[in-house]
Design a protein around this nucleic acid. Structure first.
Lengths: 191, 191
DNA sequence: TCCTTTCTTTAGTGCCCGCTACAAAATAAC
DNA sequence: GTTATTTTGTAGCGGGCACTAAAGAAAGGA
């Protein structure tokens, strides 16, 4: 019983997500959030807790929607090489999609933030992504698709670096074809 | 004539530089700056103007000291390939030097900043670095050291991406040898 | 209809931000 | 020593920050 909520919780969360994506955690103010979400501060605090927890929900939602292409690419190709190639190509697409802010929220939203919880949460997501690449490469080494001397850790760090660089380039205004060229050149690193 | 300044302007500027380097422009407060510099706010404003102009001086100083290795690498090797190889290796060294904050100030200090002047100033430095790589590659294409079909712009964007990714990795705590491995793999992109 | 519960809006709270007025202290010129 | 000039420390300015107390408005249950 009681008065029903006048706004759509998921729609408002998506608006908040895009504010955090565009400006990062610290540079995004509660006033800016409420303006983007179309609600007043007490509604935000009643529905999401506080700014920090709203950010946590936004990160989770990002992983499940805009960022989900990465896990799909790594799981949906017969070889590590094809999986990473798809991962890089799709990153070029997503990072330059004009329908939302450029680059990757997980990579950029915690930069220059004071809150150690925010920094750690995003860094763990980035490390998890790097570890996923590494495991995909190791799988192909174990099955003989890649030579046994392949350094899976180095390849994972390299491709993670390239993806993080592509995100920075996208935020600097790089065009989609520029990032596709980066992806193509990065694929030459395979043994 | 008048009272002489009680602090060393250059030493205090270096302290401010490291604050901006570690935390970025917006997350660095004037209170934090004055504490790091060992002075009071009126001394900061008398000596440097305001926070924005102090940041501009810090960026200029960074380019002339910690960041000068890049121009030296591009100018001091006989081939573009050797120059970029040295650039990547030295970036791995500098970005993980425990004597100062990790990563590159030009790449990270403007992320998630509201001030468009700060954003634009740092982006122009990044674009200038990318253009310098491109010109170095073009020079070797013109002299016949690289095949005429070489895409200098794509190579420049690729290596700029790798360097920006290395900076992010360093800020995430990557070891020096990890970044050296990234540099080695990136060098496989050459035609 | 009336009561209870929840969401809504208004209007703030205390705090830290970049920045500065002011007067005391210190130095150079004479 | 005196004066003019600059730097210094103290103390505080207006403003935006994250967050909330209070009361009205809207819904369900009796």
């Amino acid at each position: 019983m009681g008065r029903t909520r006048a706004f759509d919780r998921d729609v408002a969360l998506e608006r908040a997500l895009e504010e955090f994506w565009r400006q990062g955690y610290e540079a995004t103010s509660v006033a800016g959030l409420t303006a983007a979400m179309g609600i007043n501060p007490p509604s935000l605090y009643a529905a999401y807790g506080d700014k920090r927890r709203l950010f946590g929900e936004a990160v989770r939602r990002y992983q499940e929607t805009h960022g989900a292409f990465a896990a799909r690419a790594l799981a949906g190709e017969p070889t590590a090489r094809a999986a990473v190639g798809r991962l890089l190509r799709e990153a070029a697409e997503v990072y330059t999609d004009p329908a939302h802010p450029p680059g990757c929220m997980i990579i950029s939203a915690g930069v220059n933030t004071t809150d150690p919880g925010v920094i750690g949460e995003l860094r763990e997501h980035r490390e998890a992504g790097k570890a996923a690449i590494r495991r995909r490469v190791e799988r192909d080494v174990e099955t003989g698709l890649l030579p046994p001397e392949t350094d899976a850790g180095a390849l994972a760090t390299f491709f993670a670096s390239v993806i993080q660089g592509m995100s920075t380039q996208a935020r600097d205004g790089a065009a989609r074809e520029d990032l596709h060229a980066v992806a193509t050149l990065a694929m030459r690193a395979w043994p």
